[in-house]
Simulated assay, not measured.
Amino acid sequence: MARIAGVDLPKKKRLEYALTYIYGIGLHTSRKILDATGLDYNKRVFELSEDEAATIAKEIRSSGIAVEGDLRKQVAMDIKALMDLGSYRGLRHRKGLPCRGQKTKTNARTRKGKKKTVGSATK
């Protein structure tokens, strides 16, 4: 099993899709990495040698792409900066509401949490 950037890649997936399991690497970036290393897109993860896995890890580090822990920390710091500024998006983050313009009267249960009923309907 190949372990790159702290992530165990799924054994039977093609390499171009398996690399997308790393947080911060999408399909386009995955293909760029494979082009730079000269590896075949169709190769399966279990067919990778240790040297090839090391080459991929080295390419990710050298290309300056933020992945996994560093990227998660950066995103958290960006959100914290918005909240500290008191911007509209920061306030929405602070209140636990959607901050990209979705309506909240009927939807947004994922972001708002379990429904809280305010009065009693029976008399």
Score class of each variant (00 low, 15 high):
92 R>V: 10
84 D>G: 02
41 Y>I: 05
53 A>V: 03
19 L>W: 03
106 T>P: 00
99 C>V: 15
83 M>N: 00
82 L>Y: 00
25 I>P: 04
123 K>H: 09
80 K>C: 05
58 K>T: 13
60 I>F: 05
51 D>K: 10
22 I>W: 02
29 T>I: 13
58 K>S: 07
35 D>T: 13
61 R>M: 11
34 L>Y: 04
78 D>T: 14
35 D>A: 15
75 V>Q: 11
116 K>Y: 09
16 E>S: 15
50 E>Q: 13
114 K>L: 14
121 A>M: 07
74 Q>C: 06
79 I>L: 09
121 A>P: 01
73 K>E: 14
63 S>I: 14
10 P>T: 01
33 I>W: 13
75 V>C: 08
120 S>T: 08
120 S>E: 12
13 K>P: 03
24 G>P: 04
30 S>L: 15
64 G>P: 03
61 R>W: 02
9 L>I: 06
70 D>V: 06
13 K>V: 12
28 H>P: 06
54 A>V: 08
108 A>H: 03
42 N>R: 10
41 Y>V: 11
73 K>A: 12
29 T>A: 15
32 K>R: 15
19 L>I: 04
43 K>L: 10
10 P>V: 02
77 M>V: 09
38 G>C: 15
105 K>T: 12
105 K>W: 14
39 L>G: 07
90 G>W: 02
65 I>P: 04
39 L>A: 04
96 G>F: 02
41 Y>L: 12
89 R>P: 06
16 E>I: 12
66 A>H: 14
9 L>N: 01
49 S>G: 14
104 T>F: 00
93 H>V: 01
14 R>P: 02
31 R>E: 10
113 G>F: 11
56 I>W: 03
76 A>D: 05
36 A>F: 08
46 F>G: 05
63 S>T: 12
61 R>N: 13
24 G>M: 00
67 V>F: 09
68 E>Y: 13
45 V>E: 00
52 E>C: 07
68 E>S: 00
28 H>M: 14
62 S>K: 13
20 T>S: 12
62 S>Q: 13
68 E>M: 04
7 V>T: 10
96 G>D: 05
35 D>V: 15
4 I>D: 06
37 T>G: 03
115 K>H: 01
100 R>T: 13
61 R>G: 10
65 I>H: 03
108 A>F: 02
106 T>F: 05
90 G>V: 03
61 R>Q: 12
8 D>T: 10
123 K>Q: 03
42 N>P: 06
102 Q>P: 04
90 G>N: 00
33 I>H: 07
17 Y>S: 13
1 M>Q: 06
76 A>Y: 03
79 I>Y: 05
78 D>V: 14
82 L>G: 03
79 I>G: 05
97 L>C: 07
44 R>Q: 13
73 K>F: 08
55 T>S: 15
89 R>N: 14
13 K>T: 11
2 A>P: 05
